[in-house]
Write a protein that binds this DNA or RNA. Structure first.
Lengths: 241, 241
DNA sequence: TCAAGTTGTCTATTATCATAGACAACTTGA
DNA sequence: TCAAGTTGTCTATGATAATAGACAACTTGA
């Protein structure tokens, strides 16, 4: 006899999301004890078993840890990711005290559609190199990126990236000494099966979708990319100073 | 006999999210016809009825429109929301050709916790005015915001806001001629029941969570706020120029 | 006009979600 | 030591999700 309008999201999942939000915004600090299962069940007006399922899901993802007879305790934190003109994955992750890693998923050819052509200042149909990579902090996947470069300006970029595993080093290989972020567009979506697998996320988790274009010191476009970040692992910082 | 690991998200909902993503990133352009229900069912490897439920959910939200005997067609678009130093909801929405509106949900007193105190340059426990409002473009809710101001500097801010329904006008009332954005932090989460109701969203949709602080021309903090945007209705633009 | 392809509606069956109650196993503090 | 409070596990039941098949109602283009 639930009054529940069907949202397509299971109750236990809604409870899990609620608790996760509490952890994310500091209502439940790291190391602290969560309220008892009965108490959570009452606040969400669900059965204790439903709460247990929610906690089990969070425990599976390493966000909480249950201790029999004692309580359930909080574990984790988010990576601060500043979006500045100078945006380098490796530097940001390194600054957070983690080891940045990159892993090539796929590289290949592509042709420019209208949007990419506009971003890169090319003609529609111009040949492109497409690089798909997942980037990690220590062993935790942070984002998957699809990067496009002009195939004329950066021939064999795919195999070069496979070697150096860093966009900064790849550009350096072609003589680009420095570059910076020209534009960034952000929205959010739900992880599809592919993203979920690559980010090691359960299906249905939110991802931050970021479209960005990097330019050289003369403002000539170099690369444009679409990245998908595991929202639960990062927090973007926009600093207008 | 599905191999499906249980993600807590119903299959029809996953299909709906997939189609919506296709619409958002342009694979299905506005006005275009979607693939037939059978074809969608095959690509997602689900039953046609499951696809129908997904399409029904999208139709309910106005994203697609089904025409019997003919096909199902795409309807919508996202609002571009630039995050610049000068960020004014009303200007951004107006520039998009929509009419900005604001609606007060609640106003009251609060005391500064550590985070808010830091943002506003106050002491922990300092008296605050808390304003909760929903902001709309035409009749579509875009975001809900919780705004905090120093109660000493802005007495009765709640009732003033109820009158003018605009943060810019409220600040003007206290002699603040101009202000700009000092910092913005962005992440994503899942809408809880309260947000969902206020944003007129189904439960479980992603929201962009934005923490921001505005300062006056001397960089003295004025207000800090946490906003929750319906991700399906906006796209943030970060322009590092 | 007609055939092919589309969405709409009905019945039926199986698997999963959510609730409910009971009790075991364990921790903590008095 | 013991009582109160915690998480862990079992059984059971009704509601909802997902599948499956059949056919009606309608649109489109040949």
């Amino acid at each position: 006899m639930s009054m529940q309008e069907s949202s397509g999201v299971a109750l236990w999942r809604q409870v899990a999301d609620g608790i996760e939000r509490g952890i994310a915004d500091g209502r439940f600090a790291a190391g602290e004890k969560l309220p008892g299962e009965m108490e959570i069940a009452e606040t969400y007006r669900v059965n204790r078993h439903t709460v247990r399922r929610a906690l089990a899901a969070l425990a599976e993802r390493g966000l909480v840890r249950a201790e029999r007879g004692s309580g359930t305790y909080v574990e984790a934190q988010r990576l601060a990711y500043p979006l500045r003109s100078r945006t380098r994955f490796s530097e940001i992750v390194g600054a957070g005290g983690h080891e940045p890693r990159g892993q090539l998923i796929d590289a290949g050819s592509d042709v420019a559609n209208r949007e990419i052509a506009r971003e890169l200042g090319l003609k529609i149909g111009a040949p492109l190199i497409r690089i798909e990579a997942v980037r990690l902090a220590d062993r935790t996947p942070i984002c998957v990126s699809t990067t496009w470069l002009s195939a004329e300006r950066f021939p064999d970029a795919g195999s070069v990236f496979a070697d150096v595993r860093s966009m900064t080093k790849l550009l350096g290989h072609y003589g680009v000494k420095d570059y910076h972020r020209a534009s960034t567009r952000i929205t959010a979506a739900i992880a599809d099966a592919t993203d979920a697998a690559r980010l090691d996320l359960p299906l249905g988790r939110p991802v931050l979708v970021v479209d960005a274009t990097d330019v050289d010191m003369l403002d000539h476009p170099l690369v444009t990319k679409r990245s998908r970040f595991a929202a639960e692992r990062v927090e973007f910082l926009v600093e207008n100073s």
